[in-house]
Design a protein around this nucleic acid. Structure first.
Lengths: 239, 239
DNA sequence: CGCGGTGTTGAGACCTGTCAAGACGTGTGG
DNA sequence: CCACACGTCTTGACAGGTCTCAACACCGCG
């Protein structure tokens, strides 16, 4: 299932055969995780990183007062907590949204990569900086976009990110978040998420039922979101 | 003035003499920038990165509707757009807040680094991931903290980041942002920033005049902010 | 002395949150 | 097969935080 990950990398740069072989050797074991589990806890010292092979996860930050905020939603092919390689511990939890399959990547192998595969190192460095770009766009959303615009933006972003790894069906995709989780992703309350979803349906922008999202009016959705995909760096370049 | 940058790096990891020599050779030239200029424009293809030696800058994202949001504020010693090395272009502007001195670092030298200095590569990889951690904390702020809590949080964060490079005076530091800029950093309007500042003064938390911030009650400020510095990775570790 | 940038204030609107209750659906145990 | 529990979704009434718009004060500087 590492194919999805390779697809994501190859969308942005060329990966040669030797590099591919190394990537395929990164995972020391795979682990199955049930839904709604904290897989990596903020603060724990880490000697390995997690690659998401199947299912959806999220980076979740908590406030002492109990409020929770997702910093990023992860879909198959994402190297979820590659950040931990340089950071050595995380400032947030990694939680499973659905049942997941993850690959465990020992940091030792990544360290070896930085010593023997400079280009691949840059490719993975890029990958973490892409996460940062997604974070920044979310900051813009939370700071300046209205509830409906934020939600529309998230739907547009996920359409593209899932399309990169081949997990869309036209303008539709499986969307497993509950409204409460969607609220955590958008910095809203679940009550307001519910009302905002109704508004989006009323405008004919989307359908969402049985954990499946169908975008009925993509241009309209992009308009509401003021969506511009350039922050996703969808072009291939020599890194 | 690269000393501040070295100070920042050495707060998180050891840098040996050879590495220091290489770092000192990174900058090909220094440039003076007046206040309120866009130094790097979103989308431009970049062959060099910018290290901030003197003054304050910010990463600014714009919405077509004209709204602006800062994704991060940068202070001396920060490698402002090191992200551009892997990304090749940026998803946001780099703007000067005050008059600044910046060092220009050709990407060629950074590429050389990834080929000859694996440890230093990891140190700089860490540096960009630290930015990402700051982005995530800002996301949490914007999603879940109230206006006064967000502002308190920013003041706490900057106190620490400036202290790392020796630019604080006790619990005080130069704070050159206008209220309108502070609003752009916090996702608020300048009117509400004004009222929130008054509230913070009334509570005896801070004094702010003549571009100088004095934190009168740091514990109180941290309490309002629900501040926890762990996301700043202030400990030294082998990267 | 006037001007532009910055800071301050007021009134009112609106978006989003809070609290509470009920509807719906699905899985489980008796 | 039914009863029940639990998670999820939905709705209503109301509160409150933040925004909008507008005007004015202040101040350094040309």
């Amino acid at each position: 299932m590492i194919e999805l990950h390779l697809k994501k990398l190859r969308k942005r740069d060329d990966i040669n055969a030797e590099e591919e072989r190394f990537i395929r050797g990164l995972i020391s074991q795979t682990v199955e995780i049930p839904a709604d589990k904290v897989f990596v806890r903020a603060g724990d010292t880490l000697r390995e990183s997690t690659m998401l092979l199947r299912g959806w996860m999220a980076r979740a930050k908590d406030l002492p007062s109990g409020q929770r905020q997702f910093a990023e939603i992860h879909v198959p092919g994402d190297f979820t907590d590659l950040h931990a390689f340089a950071l050595k511990r995380l400032d947030h939890d990694i939680v499973s949204i659905t049942p997941c399959t993850v690959g465990i990547v020992p940091h030792e192998r990544l360290k070896e990569m930085t010593e023997k595969f400079p280009h691949l190192t840059r490719v993975y460095w890029f990958a973490t900086n892409l996460d940062a770009a997604v974070h920044r766009e979310l900051t813009l959303s939370m700071g300046r976009r209205s509830a409906i615009s934020r939600m529309a933006h998230l739907f547009c972003e996920l359409l593209i990110r899932l399309a990169v790894v081949g997990l869309t069906n036209g303008n539709s995709y499986e969307f497993p978040l509950t409204q409460a989780e969607l609220a955590e992703a958008l910095g809203l309350t679940s009550v307001h998420v519910n009302r905002t979803l109704q508004e989006m349906r009323r405008l004919g922008l989307i359908e969402l039922e049985n954990r499946w999202l169908n975008i009925r009016d993509l241009d309209g959705l992009k308009g509401v979101a003021e969506f511009d995909d350039s922050y996703l760096y969808l072009e291939k370049r020599q890194r």
